[in-house]
């Protein structure tokens, strides 16, 4: 951090800058973002201490169970949730569906999740996220994928995990992989970063930046399969800066209590005494599906590239 002062680029206020987009995610750090499908659920999430809610029509577990094409939510539903809570509201657009993203921006959502949980709308291109005032979060399974999304304008990255399963193993794999690949870049001599960029299919400038700083230039959250306070705390200990919980809360026996417990576990992720206390008496966790039992075409993490 330099001690010099940055001269203002403009005397008049400027919106939609990379700094306000990335900065918004910085403010969510150490927090839990919860999937909600109704205004009532949004209120429960806010009451439990969520830092934001993700408005969607069906949680991933139901998308998985019901099948079909999964799309952006009805604007009425998103409006209802925006009006129900004072915390930020995020919403999902299909991968590559820039018009869904335009609509979400027009509705005033605070963050768009270009999400593999919905059915992809473009199998070659993701959304050009620089073209928007609203910031985007995107999923990644490895560092190369994270840097490709950042290059397209993503202001926040989350591990993909395997949404709607309650099986945390893929989130663990993705988070460990991203962190390991960052450490590998840090260890490489400068003249090997060019080939590293080629191999990771990521822009050299970003590769160089990550190698120098030892971190992504945007906030890194975890998502996909987190169902218990211990899951959330483990992901934080593995280097996540915050947690998305999808089906894990409202598919469980006592959503309000579980939501509050996951919030506390995220803040005190390194204190086993607190974790033991908040893990008690939560009732049934979501039933869950083992990722290994999912046939290949039904694995959401493999959507996006």
């Amino acid at each position: 951090m330099s001690d010099s002062t940055t001269p203002p680029v403009s005397a008049t206020p400027v919106v939609g800058t990379a700094r306000v987009k990335r900065g918004m995610a910085e403010m969510l750090k150490g927090g839990v973002i919860m999937d909600v499908v109704t205004p009532d659920q949004a209120k429960i999430a806010e009451d439990a201490g969520a830092v934001a809610v993700m408005a969607l029509e069906r949680v991933p577990a139901d998308i998985r169970a019901q099948g079909g094409v999964s799309r952006m939510s009805d604007p009425d539903m998103i409006d209802g949730i925006i009006n129900a809570v004072s915390i930020p509201v995020m919403a999902k657009a299909r991968i590559g569906h820039f018009v869904e993203a335009q609509i979400l921006q027009s509705l005033g959502v605070d963050y768009v999740d270009e999400s593999e949980v919905l059915t992809p709308a473009d199998f070659a291109n993701h959304i050009d996220k620089w073209a928007f005032t609203v910031p985007f979060v995107c999923g990644a399974t490895c560092l190369g994928e994270a840097m490709r999304r950042i290059n397209e304008g993503a202001a926040m990255i989350r591990s993909k995990g395997e949404a709607g399963t309650g099986d945390v193993s893929n989130a663990t794999t993705h988070m460990r992989k991203i962190r390991t690949e960052i450490r590998r870049l840090q260890a490489l001599p400068a003249d090997e970063l060019y080939v590293a960029a080629k191999e990771m299919q990521a822009p050299y400038e970003l590769v160089k930046e990550v190698a120098e700083t030892g971190k992504l230039p945007v906030v890194l959250f975890t998502a996909g399969g987190i169902a218990t306070p211990a899951d959330a705390a483990m992901m934080m200990q593995l280097g996540a800066e915050g947690v998305f919980v999808g089906s894990g809360i409202f598919k469980s026996g006592n959503p309000a209590q579980r939501a509050a417990a996951i919030v506390k576990a995220t803040t005190f992720h390194d204190d086993p005494d607190v974790l033991a206390k908040v893990s008690r008496g939560l009732g049934e966790a979501m039933v869950g599906i083992n990722v290994d039992d999912l046939p290949q075409p039904h694995r959401l993490a493999e959507r996006g590239w």
Partner: peptide, 10 residues
């Protein structure tokens, strides 16, 4: 306002 109104200014 909301996040789309977030801004930088001197």
């Amino acid at each position: 306002g909301r996040q789309v109104d977030s801004f930088e200014a001197p």
